[in-house]
Design a protein around this nucleic acid. Sequence first.
DNA 1: GTTGAAATTAGTACGAA
DNA 2: TTCGTACTAATTTCAAC
Lengths: 211, 211
Amino acid sequence: MSEISRNAGSGGASSGRIGIGLELDATHLKILEVLRENGRISVSALAERVGISRASAYTRFEALRADGAIKRFTAEIDHVRTGLGITALIFVTVRQQMWKQFRAELARMPEVEYCAITTGQHDAMILVRMADVAEVHAMVTDRLAGIPAVKATETVFILDEVLKRPYVLPSDRGKPRSARRGAQETQGDVPLGKMRFVGAAEGRAALRKDE
Amino acid sequence: MSEISRNAGSGGASSGRIGIGLELDATHLKILEVLRENGRISVSALAERVGISRASAYTRFEALRADGAIKRFTAEIDHVRTGLGITALIFVTVRQQMWKQFRAELARMPEVEYCAITTGQHDAMILVRMADVAEVHAMVTDRLAGIPAVKATETVFILDEVLKRPYVLPSDRGKPRSARRGAQETQGDVPLGKMRFVGAAEGRAALRKDE
DNA sequence: GTTGAAATTAGTACGAA
DNA sequence: TTCGTACTAATTTCAAC
């Protein structure tokens, strides 16, 4: 089998691991589909829904876990119920050569749910959950601004989370049989489709695999 | 596993439900802490780790699910393994009075993992997982640009996902016992702490609860 | 809210196709 | 590989305290 070399910029899932462990077939994907909706389903019930025997289900389930295709099982909660109903995005411009420090500081921020390094105008995007807007403000001005590695920030509030899937799968495609609308390639608005590849990217390589 | 363990596609991603069902105490939060790391743990083992009896664990577990504090259980996967190792953020400017249509189109895009309505320069942020950058480009130019409701887009690629927690909890705070660095409130850079509240927000209310 | 029992189910280890 | 079965261990449920 030929080695599938994911190109360097393929950042995605944060795991620096190279090398394909196992080839995922249609059955594997079906298992992941079921597990996405019900992560606590028993392997027996999983086998039934996928259409394989119990023994096979155990084998494949274990293989997916051992291979790392399934990282872990978790829950999804209602943040309003837990009192952290305010969600904000903080776009951060990181001072060059200080990525390691920035990353270290991130580990000390439990209210950060997600952080990604991006191309474009800013260097990183942080998603935080807070009790109120004042806490967001405090976070940005007191915590983030105090980090030397942080050059600038821009905060945006999330008004509504329209869609939140645990993950997407290749098998999801082809589902929406709804018609593609008739070729409206011509657009009147100018800034449509603007893509940002450039930006302060020199120091970004320093961030990869420091842990 | 029996009834309490199974969760169908019950909980919606963004339920606009108001009203607190049950008051979450420290024990509830501890349960959520354990479940965040291991969503498939047995209730018996959960009881042990939380420090309560089995019966109490079952009761509280059930209550959290019934109340909606726990929306569902799911898995976390490695997108590189599934062939969708390219992640991109697409910031969308939505034409006013066309939010409903925009939302309808979103439902037809299985490659969209997350979509949030935001304040600021853009109106929405979409996170997509793709096989390669060409697919991202195709998605933006062919699919999104074809939607009348979409006025403009701006695409940014995710180079690395530094941090990804299933969720954050109020009990997470106070954890980082690492010292707060000595009060560096003075900053030389100007744009620090810029917050965006304004923007085209008139039509946003129309998006809430249409389904 | 807690313990301790029984009943059910899950997980494992073999064969055989 | 996958399937089917038997065996072992664990969990869930339900009872009483």
